[in-house]
């Protein structure tokens, strides 16, 4: 079933059209990457789909059409983490539990367990203002996770992390989401992240330009209309194939090297 829907979405800002007749349907439980160049409208799209920006168009969360009177309900079903969250609670634990009404012991122990899963038990009692950027972002993630929203929106929240750490966090989120039937919408401006996702929606020129799984996307020449810079292994594979040095594409360096060495 579609947990998120937008039909014929039109949106302009300051006399600039951002979206022109865009229709999207997101299946519940999916792990979706929204990819596009800087300024194409990824943040705007996430804000529209989460109800942060209310439009005249037909946008539904869990079958409920977003309007300015039902934001409470919409907010209870969504959680949003952006690239620069600022937290003002007294302690990290307070912040994590901020959006829970009637906090129970189970909530507190869940919060502690999640902090432990990220190896951050030591920061439970400190002020969020004293956190490093990485710790801050992870606190944001935990705060969202504990809410168990229907849809978790992640707006380029991990771009400062190194590749391995980012992959680790995304894998953890994916596992948690799968277990709790949470749909994840993740916006990013590069292709390094796409391998973990079920579906990549590529935005370009006020519309959805490509919409497919990561592997098919990397095999689609239309991708080169969006960006000339592909992930390292993809670019290397393509060029080696062009020179007849390997027979096919690989998704890891070791296998690519083995083929090359034959």
């Amino acid at each position: 079933m579609s947990i998120l829907e937008a039909y014929n979405l039109n949106f302009s800002y300051d006399n600039n059209t951002i979206f022109n007749d865009v229709t999207i349907k997101i299946k519940e439980g999916s792990f979706v990457n929204i990819y596009g160049r800087n300024g194409v409208g990824k943040t705007t799209l996430l804000k529209i789909l989460s109800g942060s920006i209310i439009t005249d168009s037909n946008v539904k969360v869990d079958k409920i059409k977003i309007n300015k009177f039902n934001m409470d309900v919409i907010n209870s079903k969504t959680a949003f983490i952006s690239s620069n969250n600022k937290f003002f609670s007294k302690t990290v634990l307070d912040e994590i539990l901020l959006e829970k009404n009637d906090i129970t012991d189970v909530d507190v122990s869940t919060a502690r367990k999640l902090l432990d899963d990220f190896n951050l038990s030591s920061i439970e009692d400190i002020s969020p203002l004293d956190l490093s950027y990485a710790e801050n972002q992870i606190v944001g993630v935990i705060k969202c996770m504990i809410k168990k929203p229907k849809v978790l929106f992640i707006d380029n929240a991990f771009s400062r992390f190194d590749y391995d750490k980012k992959t680790e966090i995304l894998e953890f989120i994916k596992k948690y989401a799968l277990k709790n039937n949470i749909t994840v919408i993740y916006a990013s401006n590069n292709l390094d992240d796409i391998y973990l996702f079920d579906r990549v929606i590529v935005l370009k020129n006020k519309e959805i330009y490509l919409d497919t799984d990561p592997k098919s996307l990397l095999n689609d020449d239309k991708l080169l209309d969006v960006t000339k810079k592909l992930p390292f292994i993809e670019e290397l594979s393509r060029k080696l194939i062009m020179y007849n040095l390997v027979s096919k594409k690989y998704d890891n360096l070791l296998e690519l090297a083995e083929d090359l060495l034959k």
């Binding site: 040095l245 360096l253 690519l256």
Partner: peptide
């Protein structure tokens, strides 16, 4: 990534140059 790949090649006795771009890498592999 490029350093990893060059090391993989050299560990297997393919003495490609210590380059820093993919285009140069292709040339030296070829």
């Amino acid at each position: 990534n490029i350093v990893e790949f060059i090391k993989l090649m050299r560990d297997n006795n393919v003495n490609i140059d210590d380059v820093d771009s993919i285009n140069e890498l292709i040339k030296t592999i070829y």
